[in-house]
Amino acid sequence: MNEELGKRRSATGSAAWADALLLSFAQAGYSHAEPAILQPAEPFLDLSGEDIRKSLYLTTDATGEELCLRPDLTIPVARDYLASAKAGQPAGFSYLGPVFRYRGGRPNQFLQAGIESFGRQDRAAADAEMLALALEATAAFGLTDVEIRTGDVALFIALIDALNLYPVWRRRLIKDFNRKVNLAQDLERMTLATGASHNEYEGVLAALAGSDRKAALALVTDLMSIAGTTNVGGRTVEEIADRFLEQSTLKGGALPRDALKTIKRFLAIAGAPDDAVTQLRALADDAKLDISAAIDQLESRIGFMAALGIDTRATRFSTSFGRGLDYYTGFEFELHSKDNGVEPLVAGGRYDGLMTQLGSAVPIPAVGFSVWAEAVTRLGHQPAAGGSAS
């Protein structure tokens, strides 16, 4: 690790904060990881949010494989873990290195530090530990008065599942949860949808009404095969199937008023985590929805947070909080400076579905966070070399 730190010292002018941060992560039991800078582009194109996908630096090798400069380190660390002998076993990794994104006027190469934890089944405890370590990382730079913003996409998924919506709406709402403008537009469309309008594809829409995506794709594929075509107007079979599914759902009428009211009430819950639990249980009782497992997980996490010394009353929880990355499946959080609350100092969360999407044969729990080095070094002070964040 000395050679790597030497490179960072040359790049940053001082490695005191890097030494201190990596030492604190090592003392917490996280091994140092150094993923390759050049990565396959496909995982980022398929699994990350729009903000990362549109900012990639792409290239193609001699075999035709599309590659990119790593835009973050979570997916590269996860890929290396899955390719190692530790795959499937509990393991934790820390990192500090450059990432590359187009950021419109700001430096497109910048440093990112962080932790990724794989394979732990005690999810609530692992979530709380990530938040505690993130707070220690910011404290190492003298940033102790930070705003803690948290959410949990698993609660939203549990709510949508309990409402038993059309499959196309379920998939669309969950996908758009991290994109607030899209989610608001979807809810508005659900409110205004009507089955009165005529459509030239009435027969196809009727056949697809209430179908899932797999059935819709099979039907559209068969129809297009019969017609001897593979795309229409530049749209793929998958895109056409999705469009038909959407139209068939709209044709069936607006979302039931009670379901829409429940979703909007859910998304309005915000405040201290304990208060949110109370409101969520009241909502579940009033709407007669079984989302108790997701609420129990939230309540357990709050307990572990308190046990680690985190002031939960000073933590802001919001059911509508999301980070814009498609692979998050549960707990999400950001730490912000109270003097400059727009740009996060640290951000992270749980992404249990990522490992199977990257090729794992079995699901592997995963949670982690990233420290935005340029933000914490600009707003804080550099700790002494060899110091600890704990």
Results as ranks from 00 to 15, higher is better:
R70Y: 09
R281S: 12
R120E: 15
T194C: 07
S55C: 01
P256R: 01
F118W: 13
D46V: 05
W372C: 08
D51Y: 07
G97Y: 04
G303A: 07
F93K: 10
G359W: 09
E34C: 06
M355I: 02
I310S: 02
G353H: 08
L21E: 13
G387R: 03
A154Q: 10
L47Y: 15
H32P: 11
L58P: 08
Y328L: 03
S55H: 04
A259S: 12
R70H: 06
R171V: 05
K261P: 03
A162M: 05
T194R: 13
R79N: 07
N108Q: 12
F93T: 04
Q297G: 08
A206I: 07
F100M: 01
D72V: 02
A20E: 10
D285W: 00
I263H: 01
A282Q: 14
H32V: 15
I364Q: 05
A162F: 07
P273T: 00
T221Q: 15
S248Y: 10
A276F: 03
L219P: 04
K214Q: 14
M355R: 01
L308G: 08
P76K: 09
G303S: 04
A87M: 05
S31C: 09
G368Y: 08
R316A: 14
E200V: 14
A33V: 03
L22M: 13
G119W: 02
A20I: 04
L159G: 09
G228D: 04
S300W: 10
E343H: 09
A347T: 15
V277P: 01
D296S: 10
S48P: 00
K7F: 09
I302K: 05
G228H: 13
V153K: 11
V346F: 11
A389R: 15
E136F: 01
N231G: 15
A15W: 07
S31W: 08
Y201A: 12
K86T: 08
R9C: 03
E239R: 10
V181H: 04
L45C: 03
G368P: 11
M355E: 02
S248H: 12
D258T: 13
G349F: 04
G64E: 10
